[in-house]
Simulated scan of single mutants.
Amino acid sequence: MSFPDPYDARFSSLLADTYLRLTGKSLLAEMPPGVTDATQWLYEKAPFGLLAHDTAEDPRFVYANRTAQEFFGYAWDEFVGMPSRLSAPPTKRSTRAQLMKDVLERGYSDHYRGMREGRSGIRFWIEDVTVWNLVDGAGRIHGQAALIGSTSPA
């Protein structure tokens, strides 16, 4: 199984284009003036966590920007390829799964708050989260993505 590189411009465009199409908001709204490489900014400097998983039966993370890596305590190579369900504590996985199912049917969901568990086992809240389907111009779903606005201790 191959995963996109964190600097894959086509994948970054898919993230940004579908976010704009489904929510009416720009993923790049906080990008400072003068910054010209949106792909690099999303991965290295975005002030929000950005995650994506594929469409496998047990979806695996295919993208995690540095802010998301900091939130969860995983490096790129640890995060990418990990089943996304493992980001939630075992007792919260059914709630997370229902959210993903709802997003698949509705296109996106915003203002989500949910319990997550980092690499160290410490639980925390992800807040002001928008989850959306990654849909290309032909209508093919490539997975789902999440923008995590902030976190707080559990």
Rank of each mutant, 00 (worst) to 15 (best):
R85K: 06
P90A: 02
W132H: 13
E117C: 08
S84P: 09
V135E: 10
W132I: 04
S109I: 01
G107P: 05
W125F: 05
M115C: 15
Y112N: 12
V131F: 03
E127S: 11
D77P: 03
S120I: 04
V135I: 00
W76N: 09
G121R: 04
F79H: 13
T95L: 12
P89R: 00
P89T: 01
K101R: 15
G81S: 03
D128E: 13
Q98W: 14
T95I: 14
Q98T: 12
Y108M: 14
S84Q: 09
V80E: 01
M82L: 11
M82N: 02
N133R: 10
E78V: 05
Y108D: 10
R113A: 13
P83D: 08
M100I: 14
D77H: 13
S120Y: 06
M82D: 08
V103R: 03
E78A: 06
I122P: 01
R106G: 07
Y74W: 15
S120P: 07
R119P: 05
E127Q: 10
V80L: 01
A75L: 12
R116M: 14
W132M: 08
R106V: 04
S120N: 13
E127I: 15
A88G: 00
L99T: 15
G118A: 04
G81C: 00
T91G: 03
G81K: 01
R93Y: 04
G121M: 12
P83I: 04
R96N: 08
I122G: 11
G107E: 10
D110R: 15
V131P: 02
H111I: 00
D136L: 06
E117M: 13
R85Q: 12
V80H: 01
G121W: 05
T91K: 04
M82C: 13
R93F: 06
S84N: 10
G118L: 02
G81W: 00
T130H: 06
G137Y: 00
R113Y: 05
L134N: 05
K92Q: 14
T95S: 08
A75Y: 05
I126S: 10
P83M: 07
E117L: 07
I126W: 00
P83G: 10
G114T: 14
E127P: 01
Y74Q: 02
F124A: 01
Y112P: 02
P89Q: 01
P89E: 02
D77W: 01
I122S: 07
